[in-house]
């Protein structure tokens, strides 16, 4: 009697053990196939990209993809760092590479892998070679001429300081657009190459300037604080193509919404995760353009109130 009971218990325990092992095997196989990894390259530590990334991850979570693993790379804005960041993501074989800004996107494309690349916050993708069957993304086009027009409403401009980085192709297109505008309108462009925050000092030795135009360069935006200190000290109004913090100190900003850019990138990533081929997903252009006027900064620097800006601005900082 005792022998039969022991046999039954042993048999039941064996069956349970087999069931547990089988469950663990299937469960581990399931997670290995279901849990995706997304590599993200976010240049530097600038608020525009940080906002974009927050919107990107929030959208993924809302759509039920909060469990994807995100490997975030924050390279310094130089060619080697961008390349290293992209190479690391390829080495760990992420499922999708998401890039914020043109330079990070170019670095990812240059790796020539089959990993889909989804970009956000790129101003002129076609003009700088961001194309290909393995690439899609959201375009953040803002007319530089419009921003210059508003800046001109604050003060008359004969000499415009243009802050850019020669390493960043997207901002070089903006410089080209400003050069074309300067030829038409008869003002002078003073180009100031910013590779690191210390380069902001170059503004002081650039000769006579009437205003500063900050391109979408990551290097320029990483050097924002020293740039604005010099602008204030020399009473130079500033204009930027990238939205920063709520009161960054830039007087006029015309920028695509980073939140919208992040969400558009997330929508494309979700399509890929659901099985769509990246080549079948067309790129889209951001619709939410923000015109921000910092009245407080404008008044503290003693400039007139430009009524066009006051009436047109989507946000006024007071």
């Amino acid at each position: 009697m005792l022998g039969i009971t022991t046999y039954r218990v042993q048999r039941q325990l064996s069956l349970c053990l087999v069931a547990i092992v089988a469950f663990l095997i299937f469960a581990s196989q399931g997670s290995a196939t279901d849990r995706k990894t997304i590599g993200v390259i976010m240049t530097g530590d600038i608020p525009y990209y940080a906002k974009m990334h927050r919107a990107f991850t929030a959208k993924l979570s809302r759509e039920g993809y909060g469990n994807v693993e995100i490997l975030l790379q924050k390279p310094y804005p130089d060619l080697i760092s961008w390349s290293n960041a992209a190479r690391k993501l390829v080495a760990v074989d992420v499922d999708i590479i998401v890039t914020y800004g043109a330079s990070a996107t170019i670095a990812a494309i240059n790796e020539k892998t089959n990993i889909p690349v989804v970009y956000a916050g790129v101003h002129h993708p076609a003009a700088i070679g961001i194309t290909g069957k393995n690439t899609t993304g959201s375009v953040a086009k803002v007319p530089t001429s419009s921003l210059f027009r508003y800046l001109k409403g604050i003060t008359s401009i004969s000499n415009l300081g243009v802050l850019y980085s020669e390493l960043e192709k997207d901002c070089m297109k903006e410089v080209e657009e400003l050069e074309a505008l300067s030829r038409e309108l008869g003002f002078k462009i003073v180009k100031i190459n910013i590779k690191r925050p210390e380069d902001a000092k170059k503004i002081k030795t650039a000769g006579r300037l009437d205003a500063l135009f900050l391109t979408s360069s990551a290097s320029v935006n990483m050097a924002l604080d020293p740039i604005l200190d010099i602008a204030r000290a020399n009473r130079l109004p500033t204009a930027s193509l990238l939205k920063g913090e709520n009161n960054s100190g830039v007087i006029v900003t015309l920028s695509t919404s980073p939140e919208e850019q992040g969400e558009l990138a997330a929508e494309k990533v979700i399509k890929i995760l659901r099985g769509a081929h990246v080549g079948a997903i067309s790129s889209s252009t951001g619709k939410d353009i923000e015109l921000i006027f910092n009245l407080r900064e404008n008044m503290s620097m003693g400039f007139k109130i430009p009524m066009d800006l006051v009436t047109e601005a989507t946000k006024i900082v007071q």
């Binding site: 803002v142 001429s145 015309l254 353009i289 015109l291």
Partner: peptide, 13 residues
Amino acid sequence: SHDSAIYSVLDNR
């Protein structure tokens, strides 16, 4: 206003 409509298109809004 008319000017604001023009600026909206210029700015890509």
